[in-house]
Amino acid sequence: MTGTKRTRGFALAVAALCGALLAGCTGSDGVVTEEPSPTVGTTSASSSTKPSSPSPSPTALSDEELLAMAPEGASQQTAQGAALMMQFFLEEYAAALKIPDSTAIEALSLPSCEFCADLLSDFDRLEIAEGHLESGAIEVDATSISAAADTDTDNVVIVKMNVQQTAFEYVDAAGMSLGGSAPGEFAISARMRLDDSIWRVEGVVVDDL
């Protein structure tokens, strides 16, 4: 996958991209609609298996619990709702790494999403190391956010945004460093599918800016 970074000892595939809480990503400001590029947000759908959870999992979230966690507006069956859910997905990933707890990420990940499977594997690695995300941040450029229906597929929205990532650090239970990632800027294209009345992540493409 383009634009992924891997950290020492972990191969945290998207930690360089999504390593901390997103700034300003739960509001509707900056979300616009436009005609989508036919190639934006596509990803391999070769995987037919649901991404695995990092451990004998806590009870899976119900759809009601998931929507209660998501920001206001993310439940709307509109392009803006899809954009808000994608923003929440990235924000919750980072928050969950600080616990760590992958249940919300798993609930929002569709089987075809290899990016999501990479995220979920990060929880496995952190569990083995008894570690968590200690510090870092990602800022979303609100003026770059766009969302538009896929004209070729029903119930699919393409969401695009640019993000800036600061340096961040992972630590173990004793507070010792487990490595981290350098700053970077990335363009994200996400394919969101309405599944059981909830926008879930079907695929993500990441490119360096």
Rank of each mutant, 00 (worst) to 15 (best):
E64N: 09
W199T: 05
S177H: 02
E114W: 12
D124M: 07
Y93D: 06
S144A: 00
L21D: 14
L84I: 09
L209M: 05
M192A: 02
L209Q: 08
A82F: 07
T49E: 14
S146G: 10
S62P: 03
G184D: 02
T7N: 15
S47H: 10
Q87W: 09
A79R: 05
G73E: 04
E134N: 11
G9D: 10
S135D: 14
L66I: 01
D124A: 08
V159N: 06
S75T: 09
L22I: 07
S44K: 02
L194I: 06
G131W: 10
F88T: 06
V163H: 01
S144Y: 00
S189M: 01
E114D: 14
C113G: 04
R191M: 08
E65I: 02
G27C: 03
G131M: 09
E114M: 14
A147F: 03
P58M: 00
S181V: 12
P38F: 07
P183M: 02
Q164G: 13
L178Q: 04
A129M: 11
P54I: 04
S57Y: 10
M176T: 13
D152V: 08
L110M: 09
T26K: 11
F168S: 15
T39F: 12
S189C: 06
A190E: 03
T153M: 05
Q164T: 12
A94Q: 01
D207Q: 14
G73S: 04
Q77N: 12
E35A: 13
M1R: 07
D150Q: 06
F10D: 11
N162D: 15
M69Y: 11
E72Y: 05
I188R: 03
L133H: 11
Q76T: 15
V156T: 06
A182M: 09
L126A: 04
S112H: 01
M161A: 11
S44A: 09
E35M: 10
L97W: 00
T153Y: 05
L120H: 00
L108A: 02
L133Q: 14
G19V: 03
D63N: 15
S181F: 13
F10E: 14
C25S: 15
S189I: 01
E91N: 15
G81P: 00
L119M: 15
L21R: 15
V163A: 11
D101E: 06
F123R: 00
R191L: 05
K5R: 15
I158Q: 12
L108N: 04
R8E: 15
E106K: 11
A94N: 04
W199E: 08
S53D: 08
S75P: 06
L126Y: 01
T2H: 11
E106A: 15
E202V: 02
T4L: 14
A182K: 10
A70Y: 07
G203T: 07
G136D: 02
T26A: 09
M161F: 04
A45D: 13
T43N: 10
R193F: 04
E34Y: 07
L209D: 01
S62T: 15
G27Q: 00
T43L: 12
